[in-house]
Design a protein around this nucleic acid. Structure first.
Lengths: 194, 194
DNA sequence: ATAATAATTGAGACTACTCTCATTTTTATA
DNA sequence: TATAAAAATGAGAGTAGTCTCAATTATTAT
């Protein structure tokens, strides 16, 4: 089993450590089986705790899913923010952020898989991630790099193109050409003129 | 509950009629809850048969899902074939088929929902539907309507744009503008020159 | 070291299924 | 109508899960 949060130095109290063990266990199992098929029984066993202990940390089944999905989303957003490029060209910014996001999602497959899983369930989560897209798309339209009218549906389309790229690479292996083709499709949809 | 196959005149034998009742019941329940959460118990009850009767018709849980998914796919493919336009312009053919497919998938929401559900699970099913796309895309590239290189990933991208359109309209109501925006995005991805 | 507090434990009550099979009922056939 | 064949029944064995709680163990503060 891989560790994600358990290894963090900040975990002092017993409670924190147990919680981190549950989360790491959950990430591994959810990535393998999806939310629907992941059981508390298995998570507890995998985390090395008793079944009942789980309920000191989470109210119920749903809570752990929400927590895990949020943690992954936060980590992925962090990656995008940390790697924002300095250029003022919105198209370049969009390309960079998208590449970073795809790269990180497939580099740690568990994160990518859970993000895809969660994107299906929670609209909010997808919104968190698409924020960074929207900003660049809007300023690209403003400065006439993208010759389209802004539209929420357009953002959704671009978002699913990105999710599809992640899904494809998680299934068939990391492939930069696929990421490039993804960027191409996005720029075409946005009617990008250099 | 809506009837889909039960009402067909061709159902003579008791066995056929019971089977159709199971399928109709399954369609209604799967459309509401998805494959994962649909139980045989509920399907049997909903179909007005005893639990054990189900197993005279289907080996197990998985079999009914496969059967339902295939039936829906067959119906949807039929719709596309019946509505093929006579024109020789591949772009026009592609636009027409795509519109028809989206239209029918959202017109009978149960079909659309199950198709989306099944597309997630079964690669084969998505292939069945994308066949009609591939034909038109290839001939469009051949006659230089689409200025791109053919590529399986490209077809996948177009397919998910279509699925997303269906999913959006099933959630927010039928909307022709959304279908138009979908067609636009597809033509842009294909680098369509009139 | 002791008491108080926090965390963990695992048995078990409860629910919700899947699938089997001996029996009964219905339908088709002679 | 009597018989054979087909179909349907539903009780129940088996499995897998969620969540609770009284008892136990570990941790922290005095």
């Amino acid at each position: 089993m891989n560790d994600y949060f358990q290894s963090k130095a900040s975990l002092q109290s017993k409670k924190d450590r147990t919680r981190a063990a549950i989360i790491d266990s959950a990430i591994n199992i959810i990535a393998k089986k999806g939310f629907q098929k992941s059981s508390i029984q298995e998570m507890a066993k995998n985390a090395g705790i008793a079944n009942g202990t789980f309920y000191n940390h989470y109210k119920d089944r749903k809570s752990i899913f929400e927590d895990v999905a949020n943690l992954i989303a936060i980590e992925l957003v962090k990656v995008i923010e940390e790697n924002e490029v300095k250029t003022k060209k919105p198209a370049q910014k969009l390309i960079n952020s998208t590449k970073q996001f795809i790269k990180r999602s497939v580099q740690v497959p568990e994160w990518g898989l859970i993000f895809l899983e969660a994107a299906d369930f929670s609209v909010r989560l997808e919104k968190d991630i698409s924020k960074f897209l929207i900003k660049d798309i809007k300023s690209g339209i403003r400065d006439k790099s993208f010759l389209v009218k802004y539209d929420d549906f357009l953002v959704e389309q671009i978002m699913i193109i990105v999710l599809h790229s992640i899904s494809h690479q998680l299934e068939n292996g990391i492939n930069k050409q696929i990421t490039d083709k993804t960027i191409n499709a996005i720029l075409r949809i946005l009617n990008y003129k250099k």
